[in-house]
């Protein structure tokens, strides 16, 4: 079985008039199904570019990207949109919920864009909300929810299509430490119980400690790619999780 994510010599550069900015240079690595990866690095190190590429929001300028064994680097806009819809769930720092729209409708959103009609869309959205502990808040609008609750709505939205990968870009960046722990607990459960692969960008070592693997970027390249020997576990015993990530070199 191929790795869920397999990138080879991945590069992304932007042409800014005279100069060319290399946001990502020659990154090769694999991420196995069921991993929980924290991506770290200073601003401008290429970590966001990397995660955007993994999420099929963008196309690489060089290299290969096999998602689930399937090359995606040459797909067009709409094909990429379909892959995002089916395989990827996004979680953003600022939650990115639609204002004046109920939690339920926010969670249903990806189902509206599925390539076939989803007859049980509402039920699936309710279940997703319940799975993040928001049963009963279906009709609340984002402005009526706390930051942590909003992020949980966003997680439910990311989950509603049963994606293989969750991509989270600093999901706790706007939350206090207690709420952050709550959110991380949800991530950890999704990873351990449901086996969803999670790739999470963070600046915080505390957050990264929940992951079982940490990839560090600097200047568009991977500088370290190491398993976390004892991932932090909210409220339970620590246990060793064998690394699911291998460096190619």
């Amino acid at each position: 079985m191929p790795s869920l994510i397999d990138v080879q010599h991945l590069g992304k550069s932007y042409n800014l008039g005279e100069t060319t900015v290399h946001a990502l240079r020659d990154v090769s690595l694999q991420i196995e199904r069921g991993s929980f990866v924290a991506v770290m690095g200073p601003s401008g190190s290429g970590k966001s570019t990397f995660v955007n590429l993994l999420g099929c929001l963008d196309r690489p300028t060089s290299g290969r990207y096999l998602l689930d064994g399937f090359p995606v680097e040459d797909l067009d806009r709409d094909q990429l949109a379909e892959i995002r819809n089916r395989k990827v769930g996004f979680i953003f720092q600022n939650f990115s919920l639609l204002a004046r729209t109920s939690a339920l409708e926010n969670v249903e959103l990806p189902l509206l864009y599925a390539d076939h009609d989803v007859p049980d869309a509402e039920e699936r959205a309710r279940n997703a909300l319940a799975s993040v502990g928001l049963a009963g808040r279906e009709l609340s609008q984002p402005s009526q929810l706390s930051g942590g609750q909003q992020q949980r709505v966003a997680i439910a939205r990311a989950l509603v299509n049963n994606p293989e990968i969750l991509l989270a870009d600093e999901p706790t960046g706007q939350l206090d430490s207690r709420t952050s722990d709550e959110i991380m607990k949800i991530f950890q459960e999704l990873n351990r119980v449901r086996g969803i692969t999670i790739i999470l960008i963070t600046h915080s070592d505390e957050i990264a400690a929940y992951a079982n693997h940490i990839i560090r970027f600097r200047d568009g390249q991977v500088v370290s790619n190491e398993p976390v020997v004892h991932p932090a576990y909210a409220g339970a015993q620590m246990r060793f999780v064998p690394s699911a990530v291998k460096v190619l070199q």
Binding site: G55, L57, R77, D78, A81, E82, R84, N85, R86, F90, F92, S96, L98, L109, P110, Y113, A114, R157, N161
Partner: peptide
């Protein structure tokens, strides 16, 4: 714009 970006991220196609 942000809303459009979000819709695209969750799978909205050009046509949508």
């Amino acid at each position: 714009t942000r809303e459009i970006g979000l819709r695209q991220a969750v799978g909205a196609k050009t046509r949508d």
